[in-house]
Amino acid sequence: MEAGRYGLKTDKKLQTRRAESTLWKDIVRSRTLYLFISPFYLLFIVFGIFPILFSIFLSFHSWDGIGDMSFVGLNNFTSLFSDGVFWRSIINTFIIWIISVVPSIILGLIIANLINSPITRFKDFFKVTYFLPNVTAAVAVAIVFSSVFSTHFGLINFFLESIGLERIRWLTSSVGIKVVIALMVIWGSVGYNSILYLAGLQRIPKELYEAAQIDGANSLQIFTKVTLPLMKPIILFTVIMSTISGLQIFTEPQILAEGRPIQGSMTIVLYLYEQSFKFNQFGYGAAISWVLFIIILFFSILNWKFFQKPKNEGKKLNHGS
């Protein structure tokens, strides 16, 4: 009995040992594969994890990058929340985001539907040309827009004056500069959205449209009851992408606002850049970047929750077809 029990025990031990050794053998056997995937993880430790931990540390310190760091506790965050310019930058970022993302999605849907129409010709030409603004460098685009919207010699103001309207101070007023930035974002993103929506439209089975027509639905009903629900996942995708890029907007306001000390175009990342690299307030900059991260995270989750239910409906319809 004793010997038997003892034997059983060694057997178990042996098994676990064997399992361990096969795992170890598997790991050794896969060493080339670990080597293949290692660059990402090594780089992420150095340029990802370390900077993130360091930025937590930094956000509790005051540091100009050269002298000694001094621990200031939550001071960076408390002064951030009473910093009027910071609040302004958050509000500006959201205003620019909303007045650019909504038109961009609507225009994208319209263009995608027009290109998708069976009577439309030159489809490839339209796709390529509408997409072209998306691949153009934001710096160059900002330069062109700053000339087109210039107060004294800009084309837009010339046009407004010639039809009897007054000039608008596009680049030097708080509202005007937001509109110009939003127009740049819309101009650059409509084509991208259209291409994605078009891909979505082409995946909707024709039978669904035919069935709706037989049931006597008009074009608008077909669009709102058939097209939109099926397009929701892809619209969600573009909303999430534009939220992330919209909250990080930097190049356009930086180029446009260059030399113009107005706060109408101050965005979160522009403020982060100026505090950190113009005024060398690295601790303060780190605190700003954490607030930005939390805002982006919050909105990504919100977007996702908001669209989740319709997304499931879309899936069901897809399965049914």
Partner: peptide, 30 residues
């Protein structure tokens, strides 16, 4: 297939959620 593959891949996907601005200042210092 190799041990830890699923975890490593999930980890990789998760890193895509981190905005690059978060590490702007510390990466400059690096």
């Amino acid at each position: 297939h190799f041990p830890g593959k699923n975890f490593l891949f999930f980890f990789l996907l998760a890193t895509m959620m981190i905005p690059s601005q978060l590490s702007l200042v510390p990466n400059f210092i690096v």
